[in-house]
């Protein structure tokens, strides 16, 4: 017992004097999840992190911190010490905070540990919709202007980006945009015929499509998806889409900029290893995500390109609050 107390005290002293980075981690790591329990970010992070813990030999305590489209969590981690003991577990949204007027911080204030996976957007329709594919939907919109109800999830969400893409490629579409607070509730509404069409991430719609509760109109990718090989790709209807694809939402783990390099390396290695574990790969595959598991410069370049493409796409569609130029986000080079 005496030994325990002594050990505890010396551990405290050690902890306070600031342990060396090669001992990292010497204490619990906090993982702040940007989205609520049960969401896809939450599911992904809670299933990959236990593997990373094993590699790291430490404990990562995960917390959901919701609100402000994830900005609350981002600002929280940005306010902590850059010592690698606070991880931000998030999705793509922060890259649009600046242009959407939602905050003045984004992933440029962070170092990516791992960009885990990329999702594929898909346009689905309710089974009762009077058309069966993308071309049919376009005809319907032209014949019945202002009648088609299309689901949305607020500015900056995946549906808004896909809609911006459609408006840019096809010219402004005269549809009703019905707002929901997430793709889950919107897809539920779709099955109940409250909306007709919804752009969603493939993983969220895949089970509904298999059961015949939704009709796939077009996969927003350059190649057919092996999970849904029969669903047509959008470029087969209009080749102009290829300028903007591939595009998709992603999940990533981040630390505050200024974190010691060896800590970043150690964390990146742990998550890279964790992302290889078979059950995680299977989970991502089942949900229709493609694995990336990139880190370092590759991840930085990915984030940069994603931000340029998306911010300018939204800006051209007139959906942004401020021009990407104001934040030094360059217009992507013409292809």
């Amino acid at each position: 017992m005496k030994k325990t107390v002594f050990g505890a005290v010396s551990a405290l002293v050690l902890g306070m004097s600031g342990a060396m980075a090669q001992d990292y981690p010497t204490k619990e790591i906090q993982g702040i999840i940007q989205w609520g329990a049960g969401g896809s970010t939450d599911t992904v992070m809670r299933s990959v992190t236990p593997h990373a813990e094993d590699v790291l030999g430490g404990t990562i305590v995960m917390q959901n911190m919701t609100g402000g489209v994830g900005a609350i969590a981002l600002n929280h981690v940005a306010g902590q010490k850059a010592d690698g003991y606070s991880l931000l577990m998030g999705a793509e949204n922060p890259l649009l905070y600046k242009v959407m007027g939602l905050g003045d911080k984004d992933y440029t204030d962070f170092t990516p540990i791992s960009i885990l996976a990329l999702g594929t957007p898909i346009l689905v329709a309710s089974p009762d919709a009077p058309f069966d594919d993308y071309a049919g939907m376009m005809d319907y919109i032209n014949e019945h202007p202002g009648e088609l109800r299309m689901g949305a999830t607020g500015p900056g969400g995946l549906p808004s980006v896909v809609t911006a893409m459609m408006n840019t490629v096809e010219g402004d579409l005269d549809v009703i945009s019905v707002p929901y607070d997430g793709d889950g509730p919107a897809l539920t509404a779709l099955q109940g015929n409250a909306i007709d069409v919804m752009p969603a991430v493939l993983g969220a719609a895949i089970e509904g499509i298999r059961a015949g509760k939704m009709k796939p109109l077009a996969v927003f990718d350059l190649d057919a998806n092996d999970k849904l090989p029969d669903a047509p790709i959008v470029t087969s209807f209009n080749a102009d889409y290829s300028d903007y694809l591939p595009w998709g939402p992603f999940f990533g783990v981040f630390v505050k900029k200024g974190t010691p390099d060896d800590v970043v390396t150690k964390l990146s290695a742990a998550y890279a290893e964790a992302a290889k574990s078979p059950d995680f790969v299977e989970l991502m595959d089942n949900r229709g995500f493609s694995m990336l598991a990139i880190s370092g410069d590759e991840a930085e370049a990915f984030l940069n390109k994603w931000q340029q493409n998306t911010a300018w796409l939204l800006d051209d569609a007139g959906l942004t609050k401020k021009s990407p130029e104001d934040f030094g986000i360059m217009r992507p080079a013409e292809k």
Partner: peptide, 14 residues
């Protein structure tokens, strides 16, 4: 539903 996914099931109409 998240837990079922993690454990390799595909919750959905099927």
């Amino acid at each position: 539903i998240g837990a079922l996914y993690i454990h390799g099931l595909n919750p959905g109409p099927m």
